[in-house]
Every structure is written in structure tokens, then in C-alpha cells.
Amino acid sequence: MTAQAEVWAAPLLTAGVLAAGAYVVAVLDAAVAAAVSGAGIGRSVLAGPLRRAALLVVQQPSATERPDAASWALAPALYAGLAAAGLAVIPWSASFSVADVEAGIVLWGTVESLAIVAIFLHGWSANTHQSLLAAYRFLAAGLSYLLLSMFVLIAAAIPAESLQLSRIVESQHGLWNVVRQPLGLPLFAVVALGSSTWGPLNLADGDDLSGGTTADVSGRPRLVWSGARAAMLTSFSAMAATVFLGGWQGPVLPGPAWVVLKTLVVLAALVASGHLFARVRTERFVTVCWLVLLPLAFLDLVIAGVEAL
């Protein structure tokens, strides 16, 4: 591949993977819902998401009284862009990743924290009741789970002696981080559900607040937002597969195939959690986060540090 082609191929690849990922998330969601409710998985599982997307494209966007128009329009774009930036640092094979930057883990932390800002702004800028409530309640949870991710990701960087993701994958040769640091993956899953406001941690867009930050969003902005949420979940799954499940490493199949497979496994587990567990209460989640999960994350870091010595 020539350098000129790569300039165009990388963003296209990222966008394509995210669009496909968003579709897969929607299909998985419908399939798990059908399986859990015993309705049986039919053809609507595949076509349903497309039909809903088409409806949103032609639907008229709703307006509210004096929204912060700029933030309202930009928040979904920012959120989708963050999902793409996060996916870009993930290595697909030993030799290929879109942007294997040296400080990859720190960049991922930036994506997570800016995602909190994007979700908050999305709820705040609509200037309506339900979405503002959802934004504030999400902010409380978001600031609580953010530290977990920092601890578990730094713990994963310790054996690699590098913040670069390709080096972290290489360090898992023979022994994946999910075994070496068993606390890492579950804690990271909490962060993934929180950052894409999904399933049991769907505090920003929950049905109990009539859709939360999306309560007054319809039409194409709604499509972008929903797609971005699913894309964010995809990025997080790919990250979990890279940092904890050995990334591209695996027998027989080529590297990218392993990344996709592992990502799909994590994705299925995360999506299924939405149908198997109830939504948490914000206060209880914040308390559990600071008092239980944060010490566990610290323990994870200590385990990694002791092992490195």
C-alpha cells in the first residue's frame, strides 16, 4: 500500500469498522432480547435495525426551547469522533494499526474522559427537564468509574513496559492479561458499559427518564447519537480484546480475524448484560464504585506491580 493510499484508507477503514460494529450491536441487541423473552429469533432481527435507521433518516428532527444549538449539534459528532479515535489506536496485527501512537493508553484515557463530556453536553444542551436530569446523574457515575479504567489500563501497561498498545499485545504472548490480571477485564467492562451508557449502566439514556439525553432528540441527530453509542461500545470491546485477551495473537487464523472474533465475544457479553441485569441506581453505583471497585482496581495495579518485580 502506498503512503498516499494509506492516508485515505485509514479513516475509511475506521469508519467502516465502526458502522459495521454499530449494526452488529443492534442485531445482537435484538437477538438477545428475542432469546431472553422467548420470542424466537426471526428475520426481523437482521432487518429491524436498518428499518429503524431508515425511519430516523426521514423523520423530522425535533426542536426544544432555547437549546444550546452548537453543543446539541456537536455532541453526537464529538462522541462518534471519539469512538473513531479510540478504535484508531488498536493494532489489528503485528504490523498494522491505523495509529499505533506511543502514548496509546493515555490517548484512550482522553477518549474516555471526553466521552463523559460529550454525553453530559448532549443532555445539558437540549435545555429540557429529563435530559438535564440524565446528564447530571450520568456525570456523577462517570466521574466515579473513570478512575477504575486508569488503574486497570496502567496495570496492563506494566508488564509491557510501554504505553503503546502493540507492545501491550506483544507482552501477552503465552499468557493473556485476563489470566495474569483477573480483575482487569471485569472492571474494564464496567467502564465500557458506563462510557457507552449501555445496559445496566445506561444512566444517561435510560428508559426510566424517557430516554434521558435522547428524550427530545429525533430524526438524524438521534440516528447519529444511537450509532455513536453502539460504535463506542464496539471500540471498547476491541480495546478489551486488545488489552486483556491478547489482541491479534492466536493460532491458525490471521491477526485481524482474531481481533474481530475476540471483539465480537466481548461485544456479545456486554450487549447481553443489558438484557440480563437491571439498571443500577446512581447513588448505589457511585458508592460501590468508590468503596469496592476502586480498591479492587488498586489491588489489580498492586498485583501487576508485584509480578513485575
Binding site: 502514548a103 493515555v106 490517548l107 484515557g109 474522559s113 462517570g142 466521574l143 473513570l146
Partner: peptide, 12 residues
């Protein structure tokens, strides 16, 4: 990147 990360959390 560290500045981006720190400041985002701090401003939130």
C-alpha cells in the same frame, strides 16, 4: 495527551 486527559477530567 496527558494534558488533554487531566484537563478534561478537571473541567468536568
Amino acid at each position: 495527551v496527558a494534558l488533554l486527559f487531566m484537563m478534561t477530567v478537571e473541567m468536568t
